[in-house]
């Protein structure tokens, strides 16, 4: 499978943590906080299947990405097949199928932002973080930069997201300052 540099993190990313060859440590162990959180979510729905997207979010919050082992675990926990879980994970762009940096930087490069210099913003991030290429993770494991479709802030180009933080009106000049906050 080749995913190319994309919102899912990119197949070429250097795995920095959660390496595939390490023994998998389950997320939803009995009595754990993620388990409690999932159980709470499941209590609101009639079927366990309904908890799939939130369960994957919990995995991604805990591990930074959703590994194939994690898909298997989520399937086991929810009574779904691993293949079904993978089908869902790969359908959406916001679940990482590969390890990403500690700070996952999404830069909007659609029309308005492009006019306002988004491509230079991307370049600045790639340079300042040391990532070099879209989808790759910096050698220190801290950053991954990708381009995304519209973040819904066309009047405040160029918007970016770093993990769950939304930052608008980013220009090339602001990049070093922003990165200081996410060091």
């Amino acid at each position: 499978m080749s995913h190319g540099p994309s919102a899912s993190g990119g197949a070429v990313a250097q795995p920095m943590h959660g390496h595939q060859d390490e023994p998998y440590v389950p997320v939803f162990t009995a009595g754990s906080a993620p388990r409690a959180k999932l159980d709470d979510i499941l209590s609101r729905y009639p079927t366990r299947q309904a908890g799939l997207l939130p369960a994957l979010w919990i995995v991604q919050d805990e591990r930074g990405w959703v590994s194939e082992h994690a898909m298997q675990e989520v399937g086991d926990v929810l009574g779904l097949t691993a293949a079904y879980v993978k089908g869902v994970v790969t359908f959406y762009t916001m679940y990482h199928q590969h390890p990403v940096g500690q700070y996952f930087i999404q830069v909007c490069t659609t029309s308005c932002c492009n006019c306002m210099g988004a491509e230079d913003v991307v370049k600045a991030f790639l340079e300042k973080t040391g990532c070099g290429e879209l989808g790759l993770t910096s050698a220190d494991g801290r950053y991954t930069v990708i381009e995304v479709e519209c973040l819904g802030a066309c009047g405040f180009a160029t918007p970016i997201m770093i993990n769950n933080d939304f930052i608008d009106s980013v220009s090339v000049e602001k990049v070093p300052e922003i990165l200081k906050k996410y060091a």
Binding site: M1, H3, M71, L80, T81, A83, T90, F91
Partner: peptide, 27 residues
């Protein structure tokens, strides 16, 4: 059994074998 499913979407959609591509692992 549920070994097979469709992953990806659009032009990238394809048939997968479990999460790992390994039938044995997928039951």
């Amino acid at each position: 059994v549920g070994v097979l499913d469709v992953a990806g979407r659009g032009a990238d959609a394809h048939i997968i074998v479990g999460a790992h591509g390994d039938p044995e692992h997928a039951g």
